[in-house]
């Protein structure tokens, strides 16, 4: 991070295995910088208050609500957005299990589920429920999303 003209700084972020630079304010959230400065619009703004999970990305492998992270805070960490996942088992499972309708919540759910599968390949129902409760879906009944996660865990 370098100082530039008072309130603006150059932020070098490691996103999806690339170093990306943006001029941003220290008060800009990671969500806003990803979307507006880096053109990565996969992480969705919903509540911007930490409640809905639509903005979830992975930071050093852990799900984080990018509306609750400052971009400057994420310097030096590995950030993965939905654009960084390519044909992963959880993406295929979301299609096979009909785990989305309008799709707005889907990137957030997929990033959280991907984090869960990486950290807890043997996750029990309680852990799955605990992690998935971080995200809100207005269309599905959640059942299909849970089925998508459990189908990948079973394969493992």
């Amino acid at each position: 991070m370098e100082d530039r003209e008072g309130c603006q700084v150059i932020v070098n972020l490691r996103v999806n295995d690339e170093i990306r630079s943006a001029v941003a304010r220290p008060a800009d959230t990671l969500l806003d910088v990803l979307r507006e400065k880096l053109g990565l619009t996969g992480a969705k703004p919903g509540c911007k208050n930490g409640d809905c999970g639509a903005c979830t990305v992975l930071v050093d492998g852990w799900p984080q609500k990018s509306c609750l992270v400052l971009a400057v805070e994420a310097v030096g960490q590995w950030i993965t957005t939905i654009e960084g996942l390519k044909d992963t088992p959880i993406q295929r499972a979301f299609i096979e299990q009909w785990a989305f309708q309008c799709g707005y919540c889907t990137p957030g759910f997929i990033m959280n589920s991907h984090g869960l599968i990486q950290h807890h390949p043997n996750a029990n129902d309680e852990t799955i429920k605990d992690w998935l409760s971080s995200n809100i879906c207005r269309c599905t009944g959640y059942r299909e999303i849970k089925d998508a996660v459990t189908s990948v865990l079973k394969e493992k």
Binding site: Q64, V69, N135
Partner: peptide
């Protein structure tokens, strides 16, 4: 602590 907020928020 696990009763506060939700799992992803608790990661922060």
């Amino acid at each position: 602590a696990a009763g506060i907020a939700d799992r992803t928020s608790r990661n922060k």
